[in-house]
């Protein structure tokens, strides 16, 4: 293994691992990498799942190991932690920008009470035309992390990466 390797070096390598469901986001943008621990010749990457059933997590583990190996790290270990639970607050600003450019509305501000019935996050900005005249179609979308919205101005449907 390379000598004098720093945590930052590992983080910059991990920037190359993308979310298989939303390939414009790196796992660093997504905020799932919670720590990198270097000891002797072992690199341990501590990750946390976005949603418990997210099928992308298994894929992400495989890709982290493969990417680190490409960069000369033979001994790697992935540790998954559940607490503290992942939140969209950990999504980086550059990640939000990338989502918008990709056509997915990024999470906006703090979520209201999730228990208020028939409530929805309003004023979500359409990633196509930037209108805030939008409405929720369903709080469950094409993946666990997204809700379905439609824009009442340009009439296009879009995915919203919901506050979680």
């Amino acid at each position: 293994m390379n000598t004098a390797i720093s945590k930052e070096d590992v983080y910059s390598i991990l920037e190359k691992v993308s979310d298989p469901e939303v390939p414009v986001l790196s796992i660093i943008d997504l905020g799932v990498v919670r720590d990198v621990i270097l000891s002797d010749d072992l690199v341990e990457v501590v990750i946390t799942p976005t949603y418990t059933g997210c099928p992308a997590m298994d894929m992400i583990e495989v890709e982290i190991k493969a990417t680190l190996q490409e960069h000369g790290f033979e001994r790697t270990k992935i540790t998954t932690i559940l607490s503290p639970a992942w939140t969209t607050d950990w999504l980086s600003e550059s990640g939000k920008q990338k989502l918008r450019e990709y056509g997915i509305a990024p999470p906006q501000g703090a979520a209201k009470s999730k228990r208020a019935l028939f409530s929805e996050e309003s004023g979500i900005i359409c990633p196509q035309c930037s209108s805030t005249n939008t409405e929720m179609v369903s709080q469950f979308g094409s993946t666990a992390c997204k809700a379905q919205y439609k824009c009442l101005s340009c009439e296009e449907p879009f995915d919203y990466f919901k506050c979680h």
Binding site: Y51, T52, G53, C54, L82, S138, F140, A144
Partner: peptide, 20 residues
């Protein structure tokens, strides 16, 4: 379609929870 997706999303959460 939307409710089909809602129920399968919930199924995914539950199966994920059972895995943990």
């Amino acid at each position: 379609l939307e409710q089909d997706m809602a129920m399968t999303n919930i199924a995914l959460d539950l199966v994920g929870q059972s895995r943990n």
